[in-house]
Each structure stands twice: as structure tokens, then as C-alpha cells.
Design a protein around this nucleic acid. Structure first.
Lengths: 338, 338
DNA sequence: AGCGTTCCCGCACACGTTCCCGGAAAAAAA
DNA sequence: TTTTTTTCCGGGAACGTGTGCGGGAACGCT
């Protein structure tokens, strides 16, 4: 099964490869008639351009790398759909790599993308302090990079984010207005910057209403098992809690399941809310109240930012803050007024 | 930021590019001393081989395509880890494409992989009847293809599968031995071959114990919402059901959540089991009994099959049936003997 | 007729790498 | 010493594509 090339078309029509090439790229220096002849022959012979040769010629790979911190949640998958919706129509490939919440693996992925000579990278990071030098070096070497959601700190770079602080503030406020007073915040890992921002939003909202947060900020971790453990802590350390606000949906779901196992009714005894945007929130019972980030939209935005960066590598980094909806669901339904 | 090539190394050391190339591929026709000099220079100048040029030379892309029917479940993500664990060490890329349970999109993905000239394809399909001609054509054109899990029918091709029939039979038997009698089977879509196999296993197990299946085989669909609807049907059409065996975990989870909402206790009133292998089964309350396919292992096996096919395109198709564990969890716990 | 302009097409090279081939020098065998 | 073999390196083609340059032919204008 021999693949046919412009050379084959050329010899078939007794023309030079240059002419054939010109016909295919729709160059103006070609007679309309011969152009049509070539196009017809190309179609007849079943010509398919060889992207590898093109890439070598143009010094690009037409490939972009996307590095995500995890794939058990459909979060990244959803963002990637947005990214692909931009790059696929341009004939570009998207390479998806999973860091599995491990900075070392993240670095490996980064090196891999470099070896593969991707034209740019879209990344959500594991740890906002680690691999910073490597990101910086790579960017200085001219690699276009766009961060999204879980971003680094103190690095001049393009990024697409949700306003963690504000959204967290409003959701907390909403819980309070619904009558919750003893709201536990399950903080994410310290190594994720969003943890602090979301926690800040929670704290300030509580403060605004004169509510204490003493003993209510617990380490919720990032994995499902962390959420289970955290629920145990709530049960033990804050038995009078009437709401839980989790760093992320997976932790919120774990906490919810475990709390119920421990005899708490949800939402009657304890409301549960989290920060996310994946369909998981609608796939649990009761359905989970969350801050819904517009995942595909974020992907599209990141892709456009990256495209601009590829076209003009020296462009100033820009920051896009996307809006997120606060979606109230059954897990935080107001308890009947007593 | 100029990328340095073997040409640069050559002129830097006053050697020819051939010699440099020889040093880098560790050819024997080179003096040990010059080889070391070249390697040192390459390291010093920061030489990184250009994979695109190599690929053009060798007529390969060092890329394989993986097409999966969905990504909301971590099923495919897990299999892909197995696939990547084989290809990454070989310096090959893995391109992940999502068909979103849509045969048309699946075809697009297939065409895309062809355009990208991937060296091979690993795929789990949406519909076992559609796109059959396209798969056949592509294979005849010489594209190595390996199917896994959701496979086509009547197509001579390499594949990695779980023994749906047997595992389904044993799980059903297990439920019966645990005292369940009125077991509902939530059948998957007809367009997925596994649906029929799993249903057959269920039916024969029921038959073996002289249990009727009349009115117990319901259309469970494939999406979460389908599972919700199916649970409503159970509630209405088979109110005396004491167990549910779902085609897949997402459907099982949906059914479980909805049944509980309708007042059924799980597992006391109704046991719930499903067929899967993702961590989702452990992320719900109560944890779900499932047939656990060895996902990463399947990925690795599929990758090896594909590698063999790439090395020898005319190799006879081979079928690998991997074993799966039946994992009993809280969702089917035996009810206290009355 | 002479000149300039426009229109097309082929030649040659480039992208970065590998590899066959030939040849010079060195080593081994005679 | 001469012949044969081995060792080692450079030249150049090739993978498939794009493009600057030059030149021939046709055309238009004076």
C-alpha cells in the first residue's frame, strides 16, 4: 500500500513537482486550467498530503500539548473538548498527558512535550511552587505556555482562571443566608494556590456575617479517600456543623457519602457544597451544590490565548477570568423552618 | 532561539553530518574517540534530535491513535494509562480522541487519525454495526487496528476483551446464592455487542436456578439519565425486585441513587451490581459490587498487540481475553436471614 | 519590428535526518 | 615490501513538501 505523493502526480501528468505543489497550495502563479487538471488527478489518484513533510518544511509540528493534574474526574476531559474544538478544525493535534497529582510526573510530561517539539502547551499544574524554574526556562526558550484553573504564582504567564475568591465568597454567603451557621471548610492541599483563594473567600464571608471559623477549617485533601477521612474529622471535631464547603467535587462527594454513613442526614442535618463544574455533581444523591466553572469555554479561551502566543511569541501575557455559575442543588436545600 | 542540528555540531567540529549522525545512532563505523568528542559537543551545545525529520526519513509518525467512546467515566483514562506505559518509553505519542457515544463523531475521529498518519489505532467502538466498512477499508489499506472492550462483530481483527458472558453468569449466580431471586437486568443499548453477551450470562444463570426472567430485563441505556429512568421502571414494573444488575457502573449508580430516592433501602431491599472496573464503584455510597476489568492491563495488552501488528502488518489477528475479578461490595451485602 | 510586461512553468535548493557508497589511511596478512 | 583487509570518514542521495529565481512564451504597446 504505497502512499502517493506530489511526485507521483507530477510524473503522471508530465509536470514538475513545483507546479503540482503550487496547484495544491493555490498559488497564483499557475494557469487555472493546469491547476484544475492537477486537482482532478490528485483526487483521482487519492492523494493525501504528508503532514510530516509539511511540518519539517515549516518547522512546526502542528501539535499542542495539554498537561492535566488528573483524569479520574471528567474536569480535564471537558476542558480538553473546548481546546480540541479550536485546534482540530485547524488540523492540529492535541496531546493529552496526565500528571496524576504528582509533580515529578508533571515534569516528565513537560520534558516529553519538549522532546515532541509541540508548538505550545496548555497546562493545569499540580503544585504551585514546584517546577517553577522549569516552566520559566521553557518559556524563555520560546515555548508558548498557557495555564488554566490551577495556576502558578509569581510567574508572568497567560492564564485562564475562575475567580476563586469571589465565587467562594458568594457561595458561602448563600449558605449563610439559607440559615447555615456552622460551616466547615474542607481546604485543599497547600500546594494548590486555589486552596488559599477559596478559603479566603469563605473566611471573609463568614467574617462579614460575624460568624466564627475557629476549628471549622479542616484539611480536606484532594482525593476521594481524603474526603472520607475529613468527614470523620468533622464528625469528631465539629459535631455541631450544619454545612460543609469542600475544595472540590470529589472531596465533597466523599464527605457527603461518609457523613451519611455516620448518620447525618443531607441536607437536613448538614448541607454539602463544593467547587467544580463536572457532571459528577449531578451524578450523586443528593445532587451537589457547586460553583460551576464553564469548562469547555475555559478550554476554548486557553486555546485562543495559545494560538495568539504561537503567532506572536513575544506577546504580553494576558489573563482571562471566566465567570462561573453558582448552582444550588438538593445537597444544600433549605431545611424546613423550625 | 535557534534550535541546533547535527549540521551545527558538524561544522563546529569540522566533521561531516554523516559522522555526527553515526555517533548519535551509535554506529560501529566510527572511532571511539571521535564519537566521544561528538557526544560531548552535542551535550555542550544542547542538541535535541528533531523527531519530525526522523519520522519523515523513516516514513512513520511515532504516533498512535486511541479512540474511546466516552470520557466522563475514568474507564478509558485508565486503559489509556496502560497504553501509554507501553508507548511512552518507546518515544511514541498517544493521541486520545473521544467519540462521545456518537458513531458519526467516531468516524470523524477515524478520519482524523488517518490524516495524521498515525502508525496504528487502538479503539473501543460506539456501535458494533456502524462504521464497519470504514474499519475494514482502513485495515485493508494497511492500518494496524486493535479493538478493546467494546468490539465489532464479524470483523477479523485483533482485540482485547473481557469474557462478558462468563463474568455476567458468575456475578448473577453469586447474587442468587446470596438469596436474591427477583433480579432485574438493566440491559445496555442493542448497538453495543457486550449488552447481549452480558444479558445472555444473566439469563442462563437465572435459568440454571430455575428462576424466571419475565419482565425483569429492562432497557437500561448507557447514560446516567438512562439509569435514573430505568430505576423508575423497576419501581413501577417490578416492585418486588430484590436486586439490580446493571450493564455498566454509571447506569448502576444512577439506578441506585434513584431507587433510594424512591424509598428502597440498599442493599437491604434491593441489591445493586454492575459491570465496570472504574474507581467510581468505590466512590459511591454504598460502594458498588462490580465485575472489575483489569483496565491498565487491557491497555498494555492492546498496546503490545498493536506493536506486533505495526512490526508485521500481515500478522494474523489475535484475540486476548483478560480475566476480571468479581468484587463484592456493600451494595449487595447479604440481608440478615429472616 | 522592437521592447517591456505578464503569465507559467521548471530548476534547484531547503527543512533535519539517515544511510549507501566510495575512498583514503591504517592495520593486518602475505 | 606488497597485497589484502579493516577502519573510519566525507559526499551525496533520499524521505515529501514549499519557494525563490530564472527563463521561455505569449501578449500588449509604441
Amino acid at each position: 500500500m504505497k502512499r502517493i505523493t506530489i511526485k507521483d502526480i507530477a510524473s503522471h501528468l508530465h509536470l514538475s513537482t513545483s507546479t503540482v505543489s503550487r496547484a495544491l497550495v493555490d498559488d497564483k502563479n499557475i494557469r487555472r486550467e493546469t491547476r484544475d487538471r492537477i486537482l482532478a488527478a490528485a483526487d483521482e489518484l487519492g492523494y493525501r498530503p504528508n503532514p510530516v513533510a509539511k511540518n519539517l518544511k515549516y518547522g512546526r509540528t502542528n501539535t499542542i500539548g495539554m498537561i492535566v493534574p488528573e483524569l479520574v474526574t471528567p474536569f480535564a476531559a471537558e476542558v480538553s473538548k473546548g481546546v480540541k474544538s479550536v485546534f482540530y478544525p485547524l488540523g492540529m493535534k492535541v496531546l493529552l498527558a496526565d500528571s496524576e497529582e504528582d509533580s515529578a510526573k508533571e515534569l516528565e510530561n513537560l520534558r516529553m512535550m519538549e522532546r515532541f517539539m509541540v508548538d505550545g502547551i496548555i497546562i493545569s499544574i499540580c503544585d504551585y511552587k514546584r517546577n517553577m524554574n522549569e516552566f520559566g526556562d521553557l518559556m524563555r526558550k520560546g515555548m508558548p505556555i498557557v495555564f488554566y484553573d490551577r495556576i502558578p504564582q509569581g510567574l508572568e504567564a497567560s492564564r485562564v482562571v475562575v475567580d476563586d475568591y469571589t465565587k467562594s465568597f458568594f457561595l458561602t454567603e448563600r449558605l449563610i443566608r439559607d440559615g447555615r451557621r456552622r460551616i466547615v471548610f474542607l481546604k485543599g492541599p497547600d500546594c494548590i494556590y486555589n486552596s488559599h483563594e477559596r478559603c479566603r473567600g469563605y473566611r471573609e464571608a463568614m467574617h462579614k456575617f460575624g460568624l466564627s471559623t475557629d476549628g471549622l477549617i479542616l484539611d480536606g485533601g484532594i482525593r476521594y479517600s481524603d474526603g472520607l477521612a475529613a468527614a470523620g474529622q468533622i464528625h469528631a471535631a465539629a459535631p455541631d456543623a450544619d454545612a460543609v464547603f469542600a475544595f472540590t467535587d470529589i472531596v465533597g462527594i466523599a464527605a457527603m457519602n461518609r457523613l451519611r454513613e455516620l448518620g447525618h442526614r443531607i441536607p437536613e442535618d448538614i448541607a454539602v457544597a463544593s467547587f467544580s463544574g463536572t457532571v459528577l455533581s449531578e451524578m450523586v444523591y443528593p445532587m451537589l451544590t457547586t460553583v460551576e466553572a464553564p469548562l469547555r469555554h475555559m478550554g476554548r479561551k486557553a486555546a485562543h490565548l495559545l494560538l495568539r502566543l504561537i503567532d506572536n511569541p513575544s506577546a504580553a501575557p494576558s489573563v482571562i477570568t471566566v465567570d462561573a455559575d453558582i448552582v444550588m442543588r438538593a445537597s444544600t436545600e433549605t431545611r424546613p423552618t423550625t
